[in-house]
Simulated assay, not measured.
Amino acid sequence: MTPVRIVVLGTGGMAQHHARGFAEIPGVEVVAGVDTRPAQLSAFCEAHGIPNSFTSLDEALLWGQFDAVTNVTPDAVHYPTTMPLLERGKHVLCEKPLATSAADADRMAAAAQAAGVVNMVNLSYRNVPALQQAARMVRSGQIGTVRHFEASYLQSWLTQPAWGDWRTESQWLWRLSTMHGSKGVLGDVGIHILDFATFIAAQNAREVSCRLATFEKAPEGRVGDYLLDANDSVTMQLLLENGTIGTVAATRFASGHLNDLRLRIYGDLGGLEVTFERQQSMLRACLAPDLQTAEWREVDCPPVVPIYQRFIDAIRGEGPPDPDFARGASLQHLLDRAEDSALQAGISLAV
């Protein structure tokens, strides 16, 4: 078994999951944490028993005693922190979105390919068993030719403080401010639902039209240093490669839904319904001979290997690096096209 030494770059909320996930894998050691905030960095390393800490990426690179990095920095920092790692030949797992522009994402994908390192993007809902089983069923032809779909990602943290109070906590406030690197709900969770839909359909999007909405949430649209101008809700129409059309929606105002994904996809031989609610996934199908009676049946879904294990397997040559930076760049192009479409139509502002 090849030993793998991991550095966690960025020590915010998601980094906790990364540190625990890698620590559970035999032969993997989390050897260092990196963050520009010394107090948070120290607490993170102490909590996870990480022996080394650095307050800059340059310091960590100068030290150099690691094989791979999991990049859990804010969205706008993915590009400038990943590129030096690729130049040094380090394997990289990067949080989504890969970058904040298609041009930067393309450069990251090209640099990773040129470096010959394992490169993966953490599209975390690839870990949902129902998604993977649905994708297998579509690819094996069980619903025939795909013709229509509808997908949604529903969150409610702007209306109910289940995860904390966004008005007072920077970990949420930055997601509402373009000045702090946010692309709004489109960049934050839109990438997940776009991957969710197009991965299951096994097709890329040829065309996309989009509307974005940013709602009044605080007096003068500001909380302290945070200008709350990032989009809160998005709706899209997609045209896929074979002419399939579908709708995609994402919002932070879905009261009653903490973090729920839904997808309904229909072919000429049947339909599938994927749900992910309260951290549990379910797949239902209506296939022959049930089409005449429109009876839907639950489908068993085998467990999925977590992204952290798949990243290590790829480094060890024991599995494919999927989803890779190329997939992340492809999705970023779709996000950029959606944003351009919304700007051309005019962003809706509700007071």
Rank of each mutant, 00 (worst) to 15 (best):
P3T: 12
R5L: 02
M14Y: 12
H17Y: 08
G21S: 14
P26H: 00
V30A: 12
G33N: 01
V34M: 13
R37N: 15
R37D: 15
L41M: 08
S42Q: 13
F44A: 03
C45N: 11
I50V: 12
P51Y: 08
T55L: 00
L57P: 07
L57I: 14
A60K: 09
L61R: 04
G64T: 09
F66R: 04
F66G: 02
A68I: 06
A68P: 02
N71A: 14
N71I: 11
T73I: 12
T73C: 13
D75A: 13
H78S: 11
T82S: 08
P84M: 11
P84C: 10
H91F: 02
V92L: 01
P97V: 01
A99Y: 00
T100Y: 02
S101K: 01
A102N: 03
A102M: 01
A105C: 07
M108F: 06
A110C: 07
Q113M: 05
G116E: 10
G116I: 06
V117Q: 10
M120D: 11
L123N: 01
A130W: 09
A130M: 12
Q142F: 11
T145K: 15
A162E: 13
D165M: 07
T168R: 09
L173T: 07
L173Q: 14
L173E: 04
L176H: 09
S177H: 02
H180F: 10
H180I: 04
V185L: 04
I191P: 00
L194G: 03
L194N: 08
L194S: 10
F196H: 15
A201R: 04
A205K: 01
S209M: 12
S209R: 14
Y226F: 13
Y226L: 01
D229K: 03
D232A: 10
L238V: 10
N242V: 15
T244E: 14
G246N: 01
S255F: 15
L258M: 09
N259W: 08
L263V: 00
R264V: 11
G267W: 12
D268H: 08
D268S: 08
D268L: 03
L269P: 03
E273M: 04
F276N: 14
Q280M: 07
Q280C: 11
S281Q: 03
L283R: 08
L283T: 12
R284L: 13
P289S: 03
D290C: 05
V299M: 15
P302T: 03
I307G: 01
A314I: 09
R316Y: 05
G319D: 04
P320W: 06
P321F: 00
D324A: 04
D324S: 08
Q332I: 07
H333W: 13
L334V: 08
D336N: 01
A338E: 08
D340K: 09
S341C: 12
L343Y: 03
A345M: 09
G346Q: 09
I347S: 02
